[in-house]
Amino acid sequence: MLGAVEVKMLKAAQPDRPDALTWVFLGLGLLLLPVGLYLALAAPPDVNQGYLARIMYLHVPGAWLGYLAFFVTFLYSLLYLFRQDPRYDRVALASAEIGLVFMGLALVTGMLWARPTWGVYWTWEPRLTTTAILFAVYVGYFLLRGAIEDPELRRKAAAAVGILGFINVPISYLSVKWWRSLHQTQSIDLTTGKIHMDPAMLQALLFNLFVFTLLYLGFVRFRSLLAAIEDRQEEA
């Protein structure tokens, strides 16, 4: 028989509720999200692009978080392989899942912006292509996770994909950059279309980056907890 103290200790070791920090991240993020949207909509329109530039306030945080999340997955995959503690794998999983959502957001908003600006939804620009490749890698990551029944093999295999997928980023960026520059006469350079930012716009952008990062932290902690509960049910 377990005494009340033991039950309490067990609960502390295997929490089934998000802790205070998770609530702080999530609550603050959700509270500040409308503020960020207000700032984005109140910021002055761009001289060249007009109101179209406002998509940036969603696009840039999305892309930033996509890359940040996959980098976190990379780190925690490494940690998992060396320490063999399932907690690291759960963080890697949570971060990859949220990264996939944010990166999808970045790709979609990017395409919506590209159509009126460049006249096409898609162009083989290095940053776009690298992002698309990374997106495909992490779709594979989840297909792989879904295909493996054995929990330990699943974690190890996923960790390997998380690591190999991320070290591909600089190499594929370089390869696409050269691939385009050698044979394409007409090119749309993102740097020439660069927005010279008004302080108000920059402030709004930085604020949105901050809010999205808070949300990301909250989401990752929350999703890791869900993964822990899932793991416990799988074992039981």
Binding site: A136, V137, G140, L143, L144, V161, N168, S172, L174
Partner: peptide, 13 residues
């Protein structure tokens, strides 16, 4: 099925 899915996105370069 899984092998080409995982492989092709990595070997783009």
């Amino acid at each position: 099925v899984l092998l080409p899915l995982l492989l092709f996105s990595l070997v783009v370069p």
